[in-house]
């Protein structure tokens, strides 16, 4: 009797801490954000005023918000394809030299930036990009071009953040692609080769369809990671500037909430971001699931 009772209870004890911790620390705060987004309150005021959708309304009129939303779109358009296609290209190259002694060296070198902190990545790059005594400008000047202001130039800041973010995080997707390519049976490649298919044909007709589950996984996770990764890089490199030109929605949230302590508007941004993230995920599952070929 007691024994079977314990056996029934055991699974709950095993999953309890994990479930409780994600509910309390992840789902809870998101619900709390929903609450905060409809009130006017800061840490100091004793009074909590319900303001309905005012925070959302004032967001829509806020030009900084509009700019960061537009930038979020730009970041996605530039970085998501780059973070998917270029790592695949690198993976194909590494796959081509598999078994050689250098394989590990290449893989390790290209993956290395992934293990760094954002602050370290920012510091490492700021010395290259520094507008006064950075290396990039020395090279430009050496070849007779004027010095550039790089990440302090309103028109280049976003691209500089893209560059550093890409450098910092392409390694993970590359690893996933390498693993996927290694899972394609060599007999299939060989069969296609004997049938006269060239390398391009083999890639598009054999490998690409067989790695499509990975493609789906990567395309879903990359959208999130791009949005998230940028926050750290932006904070170190540009602080969202100049004039908000390199900010994105999550960084805007961070600034509003934790630098200016505007909890209401910041939480409204959180809600808008969650809605966007959910919409993108649903769209990906809607379009992606049907096209993926599972072995």
């Amino acid at each position: 009797m007691t024994r079977s009772f314990v056996a029934k209870l055991a699974p709950w004890l095993f999953v309890g801490p994990a479930v409780l911790s994600v509910v309390v620390f992840l789902y809870g705060p998101i619900l709390a954000s929903a609450g905060l987004s409809v009130v006017d309150w800061n840490l100091l005021s004793p009074q909590v005023d319900f303001v309905g959708l005012n925070n959302y309304r004032s967001l829509l009129a806020n030009t900084d918000f509009q700019l960061s939303a537009w930038n979020t779109f730009l970041y996605c358009v530039i970085l998501v394809p780059a973070q998917i296609v270029l790592p695949l290209l690198f993976a194909v190259m590494i796959h081509a030299v598999r078994g050689s002694r250098m394989e590990r060296v290449y893989r390790g070198s290209l993956f290395l930036p992934t293990i760094l902190a954002y602050s370290v990545a920012g510091v490492a790059w700021s010395r290259l990009l520094n507008p006064i005594n950075g290396l990039f400008n020395e090279v430009l000047v050496f070849f007779g071009f004027g010095p550039s202001r790089w990440h302090t130039d309103p028109d280049l800041a976003l691209l500089c953040v893209c560059l550093v973010t890409f450098w910092k995080s392409f390694g993970l997707n590359m690893l996933l692609w390498i693993a996927a390519l290694a899972n394609v049976p060599d007999t299939l490649r060989e069969a296609a080769r004997l049938d006269g298919a060239g390398p391009w044909r083999r890639f598009f007709s054999i490998e690409l369809p067989l790695i499509s589950p990975t493609a789906f996984f990567i395309s879903v996770t990359t959208v999130f990671s791009v949005l998230d990764d940028i926050v750290g890089v932006v904070d170190v490199l540009t602080g969202g500037g100049p004039a908000g030109r390199s900010s994105n929605l999550l960084y805007f949230l961070w600034q509003q909430g934790l630098q200016f302590f505007q909890f209401g508007p910041a939480s409204a941004v959180a809600m808008v971001s969650i809605a966007i993230v959910l919409a993108i995920t649903c769209a990906q599952f809607w379009f992606g699931e049907k096209r993926v070929h599972y072995q």
């Binding site: 994600v22 809870g28 709390a32 999130f224 998230d228 961070w254 909430g257 934790l258």
Partner: peptide, 22 residues
């Protein structure tokens, strides 16, 4: 419950930050 736990894989960490900070 498994779905509930692994769905958090794709949470941008910034989303939970304000209430946690408070």
């Amino acid at each position: 419950l498994f779905g509930l736990v692994i769905a958090t894989m794709s949470f941008p960490a910034v989303l939970a930050i304000i209430p946690t900070y408070i």
